[in-house]
Every structure is written in structure tokens, then in C-alpha cells.
């Protein structure tokens, strides 16, 4: 470790720096238990063998500025984030959610109630409830507004990991990418952009339940912080395969494309909160796509790539006019001047 090294914002941005921090600090000090998918696997959650299946546990803390944005708010985000992490492990029927709220002194009750209503609404959509929780208040200025932590527990007989892709598998994305990140960036309003950008924040467990019934899914991950690029790099390197992506096949809303051009930010590096990346066996692609497109959250699903034996861990991106290696994001995406 370098002298005087400190945590910086890139360590929370979902890319390589964050994985390095987790590996060096937290995994190094954690004890692995045989048979359990634990911290060292760095999957979306932990899986503990139980009876004829697995108990899946996941936890996630949520901060977002602004707390309310088109398409959602911090409450909806806190529920969906955890429900989706469970779903990405194949656990689509949450048994219980917990919620810890750390609140800044002076925070308006009205806003807190609004957040609570939105959590409740998201729980209804996901078919789950918050069964226990915790509340802490910190002094003015000691924390920014409110931080929500949610933990989820669910049981599954069909555990899905993020490392099961084989050469020949196809990559499917369940809908247009980068909606959430751009919606929040624009809602912050310091860029003075206006446009119809809405977060995609939504619980994916019902959608995932439908596709898992069709079979053939070899890996799943939700491309949150760090976007599709970060998620696909992780899936490819853990699976030991290369990936070839067809950029023109990746669904993107016009407004998102426009914001990306104006700000010089690659949509592949931008967060989603209601999308999944799937590795799917070639013979199962049609069935999985059918299932996805029959659900409102998967209507615009598309096959965007193929796994290869060559260049393991690397992602080649066909752009229509050329080809490049996709880079991993190395920090929060920022607007560029050049």
C-alpha cells in the first residue's frame, strides 16, 4: 500500500478501484466458509447452502443527489437495489427486507414520509416487505440528508452466478441502457440540461423469475454503478471468456444518446437501476427473449453480443465503422470539454 493512501470517490464508483479496495481491505480480512458463495466471490450477494437450495443474502447502502428525480427517489432505489441484487443470484422471491435509516438532524418529516411511501410502493411491486429496521440521527452536517441501507434475504433452488458464461453464449440486455445515471445527472441541474430523462429504477425479480423458467441463463448481473462496461468486464473475467459486443444493437433512448453526446460521457459507463445483463446459451436465446419481451420491463430486450474463447476478460466492441477494446470506467463519469 502506498504511503498516505486515502479513499477517494473513484473507490465508490463501481469500477476497478472499488474492486481493488474491497479485495485489499475487506476480503483480505474475511474468513471464507467452504461451500458458501461469500465475500471473496464478489457476486451480487452471498449464497449459503440450505436444504435443496440456497439462502441468498445481500446488502446495499443508498445515497443519491438529488433524493427525488424523474422516475424515482432514494426510497424506491433502496428497495429495488436490494431486490435486484437478490434476483441476479436467482432468488426472485424475497423473504424479508430490512432497512436502516441514518438521518441528518433537521431533516423534514414530510420528506421522510414521502420516501417511506415510495419504498412501500416498490415493495408492493416486488411482492415483499420491510420486516425490521433501525433509525439513527446524526448531528447537522455530520451526514448529508439521509442514508438508507437495505438488506434482503431470499431462498432459491436455481442459484445463478455472474461467472458461468461459456464461449458461444449470447449476451442479452433487458432494455435501453444508462437511463438512471443520466436522469440523476440531469436532475442535479448543475449542468442546466433539460430533457425527458427518467430513471429506470424498478424491481426485476418478476422478470427474472419468468426468464429463469425458460432455462439456459448462464450468468446474470445488474449493470448499476460503472454501467454495462463494468458489469460485462466482471462477468467475462470471472467466466474466463472474451466478449464481442455489437454497439449498434445496444438499445439507447434518443434523449440519453443526446445527453451522452452533449456531455461527452459514454453510456456504457453510466448506471442502470432496472436492467440486467444476461449470459444465455445460444439455443435458449429465442425462448429467453420471448419471455423478456412479454413483460413490460423487458419489452426492448436485445441480444448485444457473444462470448468467445479468445481474448478472455476483454471486451471487443464493434462500432459499425470499426472495432475497439472496451475500457473499464475508472471513476465517476464526468462531463468533458475535450
Amino acid at each position: 500500500m502506498k504511503r498516505n493512501e486515502r479513499v477517494s470517490m473513484k473507490h465508490g464508483a463501481g469500477g476497478r478501484a472499488m474492486r481493488d479496495l474491497i479485495e485489499r481491505v475487506f476480503i483480505a480480512g474475511a474468513k471464507a466458509i467452504p461451500g458458501v458463495v461469500g465475500l471473496a466471490e464478489m457476486d451480487d450477494g452471498a449464497a449459503i447452502p440450505m436444504g435443496d437450495g440456497f439462502l441468498v443474502v445481500t446488502t446495499d447502502s443508498h445515497v443519491v443527489v438529488p433524493r427525488f428525480f424523474p422516475g424515482g427517489d432514494i426510497g424506491r432505489l433502496a428497495i429495488c437495489g436490494t431486490v435486484n441484487d437478490l434476483a441476479m443470484m436467482g432468488a426472485t422471491e424475497p423473504l424479508a427486507l430490512t432497512c436502516a435509516a441514518i438521518i441528518e438532524e433537521g431533516f423534514p418529516f414530510e420528506e421522510l414520509e414521502r420516501i417511506q411511501r415510495s419504498m412501500r410502493q416498490a415493495c408492493d411491486e416486488a411482492g415483499c416487505s420491510v420486516l425490521t429496521g433501525d433509525t439513527k440521527v446524526m448531528g447537522k452536517g455530520e451526514i448529508d440528508g439521509v442514508v438508507l441501507n437495505t438488506t434482503g434475504v431470499a431462498f432459491t433452488r436455481t442459484l445463478v452466478r455472474d461467472n458461468g458464461m461459456k464461449a458461444g453464449d449470447r449476451i442479452i440486455v433487458t432494455g435501453p441502457i444508462a437511463d438512471h445515471g443520466f436522469a440523476v445527472l440531469v436532475a442535479r441541474n448543475d449542468l442546466k440540461l433539460e430533457g425527458d430523462l427518467r430513471s429506470d429504477v424498478a424491481p426485476l425479480n418478476e422478470l427474472v423469475r419468468m426468464i429463469l423458467k425458460r432455462g439456459g441463463v448462464t450468468a446474470m448481473k445488474d449493470p448499476t454503478r460503472g454501467g454495462v462496461s463494468s458489469a460485462i468486464h466482471e462477468m467475462a473475467s470471472k467466466s474466463g471468456v472474451g466478449v464481442v459486443l455489437d454497439e449498434q444493437a445496444i438499445p439507447l433512448r434518443d434523449e440519453v444518446r443526446a445527453a451522452a453526446e452533449v456531455l461527452g460521457i459514454d453510456p456504457l459507463h453510466v448506471a442502470n437501476e432496472g436492467k440486467a445483463l444476461l449470459g444465455v446459451r445460444a439455443d435458449a436465446v429465442d425462448a429467453v427473449l420471448d419471455a423478456l419481451r412479454s413483460h413490460p420491463l423487458g419489452r426492448e430486450a436485445a441480444v448485444i453480443g457473444t462470448c468467445t474463447q479468445s481474448h478472455p476478460g476483454r471486451i471487443r466492441l464493434h462500432t459499425g465503422v470499426g472495432e475497439r477494446l472496451l475500457a473499464e470506467p475508472d471513476g465517476e463519469p464526468l462531463p468533458r470539454i475535450c
Binding site: 461527452g264 466492441l317 462500432t319 459499425g320 470499426g322 475497439r324 475535450c338
Partner: peptide, 16 residues
């Protein structure tokens, strides 16, 4: 020009 490099890289023109 940084933007030329960005465009060359982003569209993968070097490969062509």
C-alpha cells in the same frame, strides 16, 4: 486533437 483521438478510439477506427 484530443477529440480526434476520442473519436478514433470510440469508433474503433484504428482497427480499420
Amino acid at each position: 486533437c484530443g477529440s480526434h483521438e476520442q473519436a478514433i478510439a470510440r469508433y474503433g477506427l484504428r482497427a480499420t
